[in-house]
Design a protein around this nucleic acid. Structure first.
Lengths: 194, 194, 194, 194
DNA sequence: AATGAATGAGCGTTCATTCAT
DNA sequence: GATGAATGAACGCTCATTCAT
């Protein structure tokens, strides 16, 4: 009984904590990492500012948790795009299609924020380490996608870096001829996984 | 005489302006875009805060100028790496070597800052526009490198995005097996420009 | 109970807000509208500068609230001078006496500040509008005083302008022969309301 | 010869000084006493900021000189409105017309600035004294206008205070029914000087 | 006489964090 | 557990004044 109550309570606390972090994340995505305030988060969540500090030591910890949620979101996004079971020989084509789709449809602002948060943490080694670990979760999943078609993991990472690089380029205003982007991507990936 | 005096004076002012912007850049590289202050810049340059505003309208203008210097630095860095005249057939190998070298030696923190500044300006459309124009200077030079070996400019951009993506990955803590990185890069580039 | 607590709290906040505004007003009266600072107000009130912004959006809002208090003070001052019920035929004489008294005893520095605040807000149309509305509260009460004896409201306004003009003249150093001021005033008012 | 040169020089200096003060005045009239800067004055006059301090000890001195010019302007304005020679019996009507005209056409913003400057100097007794003396020049001329029709100087001052009070009222947003203003003014003045 | 670069104290405002209730 | 009032250090920016040239 007691343990039940406890777990209920802890569930309640965990949910509240998550809600706060999710709201923080939304605000980061909207306003940017260095423009969202604890006031914003409190208002959005409908709690007082002091309450935030019952769940998070500092703004920094909140950012890290929010980052974790973002990583989770991106992972889910990718998972949902993947065909459940693909005959091996079709996978090459599937992966080309997948990335064409990602590049077109990708919520690249989300991706960008992920890098925004990471990059802004460069000056704080401790935070960077924590975020880096979370980021690892995200990209290790992606690397698996490539692994069947490329000779080693490093090549897989490079290809994923290419995709993310494109996302970042788009976000900072590089103009791609929309048609060409997918064609070229297919051309490159085709060459590599052939 | 007069014009001599004038030019001396204007040189003096221009140099001072540059010195301020360089110090600002150094501070941005060290402390991060949203943690360096005008006080920092003044202290570092050995002038009063008010003086900064004789040379720059606002912190924003200073950032943009500093960004321009960073772009210039990166351009020079690349230029110096390029062999003056390469027989065409050697160029493919040269470019592979070049990028292997870049990836190894690259002052990737500088590159990262360039993206840090760009990404942090996402929420300020006006500033992003100005920075984007400067950024264009930098990458158009790079794109030219690739253009001989790839079918179109878009493909060139994608390849450059790959290089920058790798730089960013490294900076945020992705571990590459050092030996494999260059080998894989050569493998990929080789496949594409073949 | 709850509402009691609430009202206590809101009373507390309201009182604190009023206290801040009153201190601001005192500082405005002492140092002048463009020389009092938020630091002054904080120091005087014994709170931190940040606290001021919990109660007022900006210095401007604080000024407007302070102005409102000044208007209130002046209204009360006038109200207290007015005889509760005067037989109509006596009112003419009463009003002459009243204004003689006002002119003599008037806290004309307060009146002057009222105009100081108004006049200094000429260059900020939005603020002038808000202050003007508050000012209207003050003078409409005064105009009523005159209305029984003059043909229309405009004449009433003019007479009040005369009183205020005298106040301002005195404040900026015009020397009235003390005895003559009341006599002349009585002479003029007498002629008009006769 | 020498004295000639001297006087030429001093004339030059005097003219430059006046030009600076006039520009300062224009800026005060436009931007308000507490929003015009020495930079503004220097720019407007086409000299360097340092030069201003060759002609004026401080911003304060400049303001006082500018005020003197404003007083002069107002005096001239009034002088030009006055009929050179009026048969005595016509003067009563003339003066009513004059003031109706003044009230209608008056550059009341200028008048307002005069009071703005005066009022803002309340907190600086030394400056108020100097400005008050200049102001005396202005209103003593006006008082003469009234003196023929009123029993004493004090009454004259009061009537002038009425005119200025109206100007201030208008400037701070009191709405007069345009037609009634002159009629009422005529009514009041008529009663008094009859 | 004139310059204009330089100063530095000061301003209004923000915001992560604390703590009494 | 939750509040929200309070803090205070910091920030970007301004401007009257000075002084070497």
């Amino acid at each position: 009984m007691v343990s039940d109550t406890k777990s209920k309570k802890s569930t309640y606390k965990a949910q509240k904590k998550k809600k706060i972090a999710e709201n923080a994340l939304d605000l980061i995505l909207t306003k940017g990492l260095s423009h969202f305030t604890m006031d914003d988060v409190a208002r959005e969540t409908g709690v007082s500012k002091g309450t935030l500090y019952l769940y998070f030591d500092s703004k920094d910890t909140l950012i890290i948790t929010a980052f974790g949620i973002l990583v989770e979101r991106l992972k889910n996004y990718i998972s949902n795009l993947l065909p459940e079971e693909t005959p091996k020989e079709e996978k090459a084509k599937a992966i080309i299609k997948l990335y064409s789709k990602i590049i077109k449809e990708f919520p690249s602002d989300d991706l960008l924020r992920l890098f925004e948060i990471l990059i802004n943490s460069i000056h704080d080694k401790k935070r960077l380490k924590e975020l880096g670990d979370l980021f690892h979760d995200y990209y290790s999943q992606l690397f698996d996608l490539w692994s069947e078609f490329v000779p080693n993991k490093t090549t897989a990472i490079i290809l994923q870096a290419m995709i993310d690089g494109i996302g970042i380029y788009k976000s900072v205003g590089v103009n791609f001829k929309e048609g060409e982007l997918c064609t070229s991507l297919e051309y490159i990936i085709g060459k590599i996984i052939s």
